[in-house]
């Protein structure tokens, strides 16, 4: 019964999964940075991605700015927005013991953004169509969609950028130090608010990139974001907290898993498969698939 299974088909599914998974990965890196320094589960991540996708859509529709040319505008705007979200909403709450508060602020923000978008721009799905939307590049018998490939390249470049930033610059090192141990970081003179603002700016900046990648490849509507947040969280759990590369890889694993399960089982069940894997990972290897098991004291 599996006659139709050719190597080409499997490879095509695999590539589609990887290309879509990098978008989960981008969102997961943002979540990982925010969770790492502040222990905040930023559930509104997906809603912000959709907001950025709308920005890209409007820049394209109203001002005829090509989606890929809008990367610097949206990236910068998203980083300012991220810093603003931290200073305005989380600065006070992050000091508190009770983690429900930050979770609920994130939920409130998600409600606010989603419904604001739905009221202002109607809940109808939108998509960007440019001259190259449907073009694809043939590689060894496989067709790779141009926009998805661009999404992949953008994801790779921004992951590399974030990794370099965290490893090579002093500010980046401060962010890493704060996510290792905030108390010790404070002792050596790292201001927690400064570090948190940076983490938020980068996290939301990545949302901007993910938003552009999403708006060029898929139709989106205001309520799509929550699913995206959940998927990013699954990617994060698969890859393990605290590793930028792990988060990206977690996203890619999830994307591949979904692409295969939606083909072999059926589209609707793909979500159940990814949540099932998520639960299994939480149960048996909560530190992430890609992290060596280390007992923290």
């Amino acid at each position: 019964m599996f006659d139709y299974l050719t190597f080409g088909l499997l490879a095509q599914l695999f590539i589609n999964g990887i290309l879509f998974g990098t978008m989960y990965g981008l969102a997961a890196i943002g979540l990982s940075l925010i969770f790492g320094t502040m222990r905040i589960i930023f559930l509104s991540q997906g809603a912000v991605i959709i907001l950025m996708a709308y920005c890209c859509y409007w820049l394209f529709t109203l001002f005829k700015i090509d989606p890929y040319l809008s990367i610097p505008i949206i990236g910068l705007a998203a980083m300012v927005l991220g810093a603003g979200i931290y200073q305005g909403l989380f600065r006070r709450a992050v000091k508190m013991e009770d983690k429900n508060i930050t979770l609920l602020i994130a939920v409130g923000l998600m409600f606010l953004i989603e419904n604001l978008m739905a009221v202002m721009w109607t809940p109808n799905p939108r998509s960007i169509s440019t001259g190259y939307t449907s073009s694809s590049i043939p590689v060894g018998g496989l067709a790779i969609s141009f926009t998805r490939l661009m999404g992949f390249v953008m994801a790779m470049l921004s992951t590399a950028g974030v990794t370099l930033f965290l490893k090579r610059t002093l500010v980046g090192k401060a962010v890493r130090a704060a996510s290792e141990d905030i108390e010790a970081a404070r002792l050596v003179g790292i201001s927690p608010h400064w570090v948190n603002t940076i983490a938020f700016a980068i996290g939301i900046g990545l949302c901007g990139i993910a938003g552009i990648a999403l708006s060029t490849t898929y139709p989106f509507d205001p309520y799509f974001g929550f699913i995206f947040s959940l998927k990013a969280m699954i990617a994060l759990a698969l890859g393990g907290l605290g590793s930028v590369f792990g988060a990206l890889l977690g996203g890619i694993i999830l994307g591949t898993l979904e692409s295969w399960s939606s083909f072999f089982i059926s589209g609707g069940w793909a979500d159940a498969v990814s949540y099932g894997v998520f639960l299994l990972v939480l149960l048996f290897k909560p530190e992430g698939l890609l992290v060596r098991s280390v007992k923290k004291v």
Binding site: A93, G108, L112
Partner: peptide
């Protein structure tokens, strides 16, 4: 509702 949640939490 979203605004109220945020304000109360803050």
């Amino acid at each position: 509702s979203g605004i109220i949640i945020i304000l109360v939490m803050l």
